[in-house]
Amino acid sequence: MLLTQLAVAGIQTGMLYALTAAGFALIFGATRVFHVAHGATFILAGYAFLEAVQLGLHWSLASGVALLLAVAFGLFMDALVYRPIQKHEGSFFTVFVASFGAGIAMQALIQFFFGGGFATISVPLTRAAEVLPGLYIAPVFWVALAVVVVVFAAVSLFLERTHAGLGLRALSENPELLRAYGLSARRLSALAFVLGSALAVPGAILTTVTTGIQPADSAHVMLVSLAATVVGGIGSIRGAALAGLFLGLVENLVVSVVDTQWSQAASFVVLFAFILFRPNGLMGRAGAR
């Protein structure tokens, strides 16, 4: 039963990773910006939700606040950080460092106002119930599952069926096509940041109400998104989501073999192995070199 219990925990973690990583991959795929400040978007959304609820807002309104702030931060980064850099130089590393710096600054800001410790709110959803002998599942698991399925369905529909969604995909594959569609690359990149940042919000809220959130999660989320994007194959949103799920499972399942302290390192062993032996990832196209 332990293994099943771990697998359930792994799936729950993994689903949230999948969403967050999909956001990172979407931004990277469409704009080629390695948006590592995505981790900061995550904690920003989490703390915004927490604050709003503690101020007495209904959870749905609080989620709206979190969404708004996350999207605003994404747009801010796109318009005021990445675009100016890409205008004058735009080497990969310059953009990366700028993003990294912004992520650190945001993390410090949140820590300054809310402290460095865990913050959480207790909701009835997290009380685990025994669904099978020895197997405990909290209702939040089903909530997470529902949210993930709905969000992914919505994103896929958007990317496959709408004009703008096709534009986003074209942006990464064939910028020439954009002109044929009559879409502006600048608007689409803003759209990628809106969508990508929004994808971090459900994970942030669900993490806040289950395990609690802390400023240091910023780095962790950044690392997981990055790892999932590489393992999934850079440029592939579906790959990133699958890899996120996979990494969540690995983190939890290795606990049955080694001490819990090693569980996060396990993700990075996977990441490192992929880079060395399968740099195109699970679903990536060629082009690691």
Partner: peptide, 15 residues
């Protein structure tokens, strides 16, 4: 924390 904020922001601004 303030120090972290400053060097983070400085890195971004410099880039």
């Amino acid at each position: 924390t303030v120090q972290q904020f400053i060097y983070g922001a400085l890195m971004t601004a410099l880039m």
